[in-house]
Design a protein around this nucleic acid. Structure first.
Length: 899
RNA sequence: GCGGGAGUGGCGGAACUGGCAGACGCGCAGGACUUAGGAUCCUGUGCCGCAAGGCGUGGGGGUUCAAGUCCCUUCUCCCGCACCA
């Protein structure tokens, strides 16, 4: 740049003012000589701006410190990101640049980032999420797709209500302010959203349709109410779905979760368990770990139910087991503490008191247990006996806390020899074990076991089934059970129905009315939305806030017109986020949640991008919703998200960014210091998207330097290349090499962006820019080819456009173009330009790299071998040795094996 | 315990189907730009060694002309689930 010249003229300027006083006591600072001093008085010094105060009465040292601390360096030699970014953001908005409509003349592409909860401000995780999505959107647009790229707000939720309690603001207002701020930050980032499709889940024009969908579920028998022990978060004062309990703690506030009996609404997700599991196989574009996590969560196991009669009683105990092959090894039965038969069996006996105490203790002990700690198995004998239906044996019935009421039938057959939990239990209470599986056919039965044998093997001590393999026996015994009517094949799932009632205000009201005469009555569709009342007391938090609003609660029955009460719970916010991606396709529709045409044009989402923390919760619920809507004929796809990218966390100094650790870097400060383009570039360059990203302030500096390098390259050459004629007359060897580098880069960047390897894509562009600088370094101006430079520089801008949209738009216009860089075609590469005449061959002796050789690409094998063997160094290494073998990988390498 | 992922320079990270380990960036060192620089440009930078050369992808073993990549074994770290019968 011309900095030098400029500073020099300033040097001569004598208006610098009077000599300042020196501070003599300073450490480490030599008083500079006078002419330095005068020099520093000038308002600018090689990119440093001297603050006004320093011009008058402070010394050199102060001047320096002033600059140092205030970091008030000028933009000299750097591009002015502030005005450039603001300018083009305004331009894009005025042009409606990112508005899309359904059209048949281009293939559609739907790219979606998980919409945020409006917590107040964006954090680096958001920036990463949106940067990835925006590159995909811009790239696909340049590739000729009709791209839908929307944004919205997951705007219902507890923090708004907590803020209301704490600061006295209304949740709606708090949320609106946050949304405004975060939307501004997203615009600052330069994202290409179609804001006409913005969706806000807490607005009646959205939650009206959330309620409509609830009714759809209700009418299809997929929403029901029952009394159930539920997860209760004492701090949030509400219930939680199973998925929202992490290690026994609340997913949001980390409080210990307890149990409570309440009448609650559920969605029957278990009815879709099999399809949710099976269709995972179709999701080829999903990361394997996410699919495995979902499969584990659904937790399908195949086995059998076996019915055990109880000695001397009418009742029977049904157990679920996956190891019905071990049925002859049963030596006891166990019931869960909550099992209804427990108290029944001891009623009126001397054990009643003991058992009652035990059950109470067991239930409270489990409620208080922390972080999945292993509880010692405790149990009590109930004094009753069950009869093994296959061999008539009587076995004692126990109650123990290691059996869960929620899974299977809440009762277990105890096979201590072949189940580690049963083993531990019998060790503790001295219950006998019987071995019924041995590892090898006809192997001797061991006297004693030190641990349960749960592996594969063959049956012994099992009557007619002796000698069968485990697999064969499972079939044979299942057949036998079904034949005799004492059991049947059965499937069990870990997945529970989805509890959706929340005792909170800031959510979509459940559109149900309770009438003394008609019972539970759904609110008719034409009466939707059931609006949230505005004036509510949030502080009295012991019951649902809505229950205290008289005019909300009291209503008339839609069926009989008599007095009725409204449901006062609201819906889990995960309901709102289970269908928002459908609403984007037709966001302003006021007749339906979405129109068929629009939804079928855009769906499914081609690329979904978000954090791994939603691997089960949101992604499973959304899949469930899509399947229900498919069954209802409202959408044509069975899976909502064709491809899923789970981005890694943003960390700093090896730890998650957090206020308590003091390692938070905010988007705000990065935008302020370097601008959005630098932030985007760094975040995409530092790490591949799925992996963790280690934030580095110096790394950001590097991205900033690179963009300036590009800016200087373009602005410094604009005049030169603008005059160039259109032709691509390539003349010198340097020209050929540069052009080859360009097209190699285009090829690599295209392939890398397709695979989301943005980090290597950017590094390839950096190499290209380095190559252009080298070309210009090597050749004098008159030897440079302006037409070639024009091609190379323009295509560099196009390649960078998705990553640094503002600066590339600016540079594109600097080169005299009138239309947006983001409306250009993604450059194709010229295969002709990739052709090389010579290639470098690596030469190894016994697998060790010894030489490199430049040869024509069309060299014959014989000639190559001859040239290799005549190399001085190779001769020295092979002399007097026998050449056993010569491996030749064409175009790459020659390996000489000697002995 | 079960399931998944990852171990490569001082750091972030490259290396497609086995074929030049360490691209690119950061950092560091040296130089240029009057003496001054947190700008810019150039050069160097895995480790040991003056060099020739040797050693290097968590450790050990194997397959191969050739292994970061394939196989066996082992260690460490991170994430998910966790008494699911």
């Amino acid at each position: 740049m011309d900095t030098n010249k400029w500073v020099k003229t300033r040097w001569g300027c004598s208006s610098a003012g009077r000599a300042p006083e020196w501070h003599s006591g300073g450490q480490g600072f030599e008083p500079p000589q006078l002419h330095h001093f005068v020099f520093y008085q000038a308002g600018w010094y090689r990119g440093w701006k001297i603050g006004l105060s320093s011009l008058t009465d402070v010394g050199w040292r102060e001047v320096f410190i002033y600059l140092w601390e205030k970091e008030e360096y000028s933009m000299e030699g750097h591009y002015d990101f502030k005005s450039i970014e603001a300018k083009w953001q305004k331009y894009w908005e005025s042009q409606n640049q990112y508005k899309v409509t359904e059209t048949a003349d281009k293939p559609k592409y739907y790219v979606l980032e998980m919409f945020p909860y409006p917590s107040g401000a964006l954090h680096m995780g958001h920036i990463r999420n949106y940067s990835i999505g925006d590159v995909v959107a811009r790239y696909k647009t340049m590739q000729g797709y009709n791209v839908l790229h929307p944004m919205g707000w997951d705007a219902f939720g507890l923090p708004a209500e907590n803020a209301a309690i704490k600061h006295g603001t209304h949740p709606a207002q708090w949320t609106a302010v946050n949304i405004a701020n975060m939307r501004r930050q997203q615009q600052q980032l330069g994202t290409s959203y179609d804001w006409d499709r913005e969706v806000t889940t807490c607005l009646p024009d959205y939650y009206r349709w959330t309620q409509w969908l609830f009714l759809l579920f209700y009418h299809r028998g997929l929403a029901y109410r029952r009394k159930a022990p539920v997860n209760w978060c004492p701090s949030c004062q509400t219930v939680l779905a199973n998925e929202q309990v992490i290690n026994g703690r609340c997913w949001r506030c980390d409080s210990q979760v307890g149990k409570k009996e309440l009448e609650q609404w559920f969605l029957r997700i278990t009815a879709y368990a099999d399809r949710l599991l099976q269709d995972l196989d179709q999701l080829e574009g999903w990361p394997e770990p996410v699919k495995i996590m979902q499969a584990n969560w659904i937790g399908r196991s195949e086995g059998a139910e076996v019915i055990f009669p109880i000695k001397g009683r009418e009742e029977k105990i049904t157990v679920f087991t996956t190891r019905h092959d071990t049925l002859y090894g049963v030596t006891f039965m166990v019931l869960a503490p909550e099992h209804p038969l427990v108290m029944e069996l001891v009623r009126g006996t001397e054990r009643e008191e003991t058992v009652r105490d035990f059950v109470a203790r067991a239930i409270s002990r489990r409620a208080e247990s922390r972080d999945g700690e292993e509880l010692g198995k405790e149990g009590v004998f109930l004094g009753a006996y069950a009869i093994n239906p296959v061999n008539g044996e009587e076995v004692p019935i126990w109650v123990s806390d290691y059996v869960l009421m929620e899974y299977g039938t809440g009762a277990v057959m105890g096979v201590p020899a072949h189940d580690s939990r049963d083993f531990a239990f019998t060790e503790k209470y001295g219950i006998p074990k019987r071995i019924v599986i041995v590892p090898e056919k006809d192997a001797p039965v061991p006297e004693k076991l030190t641990e349960a044998y749960a592996a594969d093997g063959y049956l012994v001590n099992s009557g007619p089934f002796n000698g069968l393999s485990v697999k064969e026996a499972q079939e044979a015994i299942a057949d036998y059970l079904e034949e005799k009517g004492i059991g049947r094949r059965a499937v069990s799932y870990k997945l529970r129905d989805w509890l959706i009632s929340r005792q909170r205000y800031w959510g979509a009201p459940i559109p149900i009315v309770y009438c003394d005469r008609c019972g539970t009555v759904p609110v008719p569709e034409d009466q939707l939305p059931v609006l949230l009342p505005e004036h509510v007391d949030f502080k009295a938090a012991t019951v649902s806030p809505l229950a205290q609003v008289e005019e909300f609660v009291h209503t008339t029955c839609p069926q009989c017109g008599g007095p009725a009460r409204r449901e006062t719970d609201t819906m889990d916010t995960f309901i709102c986020s289970s269908w928002y991606y459908l609403r984007y396709t037709d966001a302003r529709n006021d007749k339906a949640p979405f129109g068929k045409e629009a939804v079928n044009y855009w769906m499914p989402v081609d690329q979904y991008i978000g954090g791994i923390e939603h691997a089960v919760l949101h992604l499973l619920y959304s899949r469930f919703f899509t399947k229900v809507l498919y069954d209802a004929g409202l959408v044509q796809c069975q899976e909502p998200f064709t491809n899923l990218l789970t981005q890694g966390m943003v960390i700093k100094d090896g730890a998650k960014m957090s206020k308590s650790k003091g390692n938070v870097v905010t988007p705000e400060e990065i935008f302020e210091k370097y601008g959005a383009d630098t932030a985007r570039l760094f975040i995409l360059f530092a790490s591949p998207p799925e992996r963790e990203l280690d934030w580095s302030d110096q790394g950001v500096e590097g991205a900033w330097r690179f963009l300036n390098r590009v800016w200087r390259l373009v602005t410094g050459n604009a005049g030169f290349i603008k005059t160039a004629a259109g032709g691509k007359g390539v003349s010198s060897q340097e020209d050929t090499n540069l052009r080859r580098l360009l097209h190699e880069t285009i090829k690599k960047v295209t392939e890398d962006v397709e695979r989301f390897n943005f980090n290597t894509a950017i590094s390839a562009i950096m190499e290209l820019v380095n190559g252009i600088y080298r070309y210009q370094d090597k050749l004098a101006r008159e030897e440079q080819n302006p037409a070639l430079l024009r091609e190379v520089i323009e295509k560099t801008i196009l390649l960078l456009a998705p990553f640094a949209p503002h600066l590339m738009e600016e540079l594109w216009h600097v080169l005299g173009h009138g239309s947006s860089v983001h409306r250009q075609e993604w450059p194709p590469y010229d295969p002709q330009a990739l052709v090389r005449e010579e290639t470098k061959i690596v030469i190894q002796v016994n697998g060790k790299l010894r030489e490199r050789l430049q040869v024509p690409v069309d060299i014959s094998q014989a000639e190559l071998e001859e040239r290799v063997l005549s190399l001085e160094r190779i001769r020295a290494l092979t002399e007097g040795k026998e050449i056993v073998k010569l491996i030749h990988v064409p175009g790459k390498l020659v390996n000489i094996v000697v002995k």
